[in-house]
């Protein structure tokens, strides 16, 4: 198993090569926070009138007709030590769920999730990990989007609104995780709940259609059912949720945390 052409530069590979200094990036983060000030005050007004209580069960978190709110912050915790070499169950589950697949053009094929093999050059030790959209709280893809198509939902899921995406691919350049793909060819027979088409950019949606109906993402389900159970999905904002407890209690890593993107995907044992 190799990570293919998309991760050839290793920018999200965790080897530490090419990491920018933390001090310089802090300035960028402060600028972003300043620019967001007005929007944030509106959000806090909305949060004040939320009626339902915290609940560990995602299905009970929201009525079907209710808007998503910042009460939730969906995230993943991935224990890399449970990722077997050569396992790609999460990738195939995502392909089956969302209808993307390899068409024999590795340079341009869509990749919502991929497995990376990271190697320590000193001793040759390797391990594998899944890499996908990290659903950042400060997503660079949203910062650069000229049309507002790339956006972060109130509950932390970063999406592309393909109705307004013009296919400029700035977000692909901005993403430090190389999580986004562009669709080059016309498509047929897409999944009804995962619309995707030529001329737009796409990436992992955290299976937003499943999350909205109280289910867990397809990759997490497949990993729990048929692989090592490395992935855990949950609400990082809910202190009683399993993921929040583990993130608080265990030593976790977020990839390129030095960039200040505040990813929603946590890794263990990297």
């Amino acid at each position: 198993m190799s990570c293919g052409s998309k991760c050839a530069t290793g920018c999200a590979g965790g080897t530490g090569r090419g990491c920018a200094g933390a001090g310089r990036d802090r300035i960028d983060e402060e600028r972003r926070s300043f620019m967001r000030g007005a929007a944030a005050s509106v959000m806090s007004l909305g949060a004040g009138v939320t009626l339902y209580a915290f609940d560990a069960d995602p299905a009970a978190a929201r009525e079907p007709g209710e808007k998503v709110t910042a009460k939730n912050r969906w995230g993943l915790l991935i224990d890399v030590s449970k990722c077997a070499d050569g396992c790609s169950k999460c990738v195939t589950a995502c392909q089956d769920e969302n209808g993307w697949r390899d068409t024999g053009h590795p340079e341009t094929d869509a990749q919502w999730i991929r497995t990376l093999t990271v190697k320590n050059p000193n001793n040759g030790a390797t391990f594998s990990l899944p890499m996908m959209c990290q659903h950042c709280a400060n997503p660079p893809c949203v910062d650069v989007c000229p049309t507002g198509a790339s956006f972060k939902r109130a509950d932390g899921i970063v999406l592309v609104d393909k109705h307004t995406c013009i296919g400029c691919r700035y977000c692909m350049m901005a993403c430090p995780y190389k999580a986004r793909s562009f669709i080059h060819e016309p498509l047929q027979d897409q999944k009804p709940y995962a619309p995707r088409g030529k001329g737009t950019v796409e990436s992992c949606t955290l299976c937003v259609h499943r999350v909205d109906s109280g289910r867990i993402p397809a990759c997490v389900e497949a990993c729990n059912d048929t692989a090592g159970g490395a992935m855990l999905f949950g609400d990082l904002n809910d202190p009683s949720s399993e993921i929040a407890k583990r993130v608080t209690a265990l030593r976790t890593t977020r990839i390129r945390a030095d960039l200040g993107t505040d990813p929603g995907v946590y890794y263990r044992n990297i």
Binding site: R62, P64, G65, K67, V68, R153, A154, H163, D212
Partner: peptide, 15 residues
């Protein structure tokens, strides 16, 4: 339809 699509895509309303 356009109003509803924003409700679905941005606000997660899937009734």
């Amino acid at each position: 339809l356009m109003h509803q699509r924003d409700g679905t895509v941005h606000d997660g309303i899937r009734t």
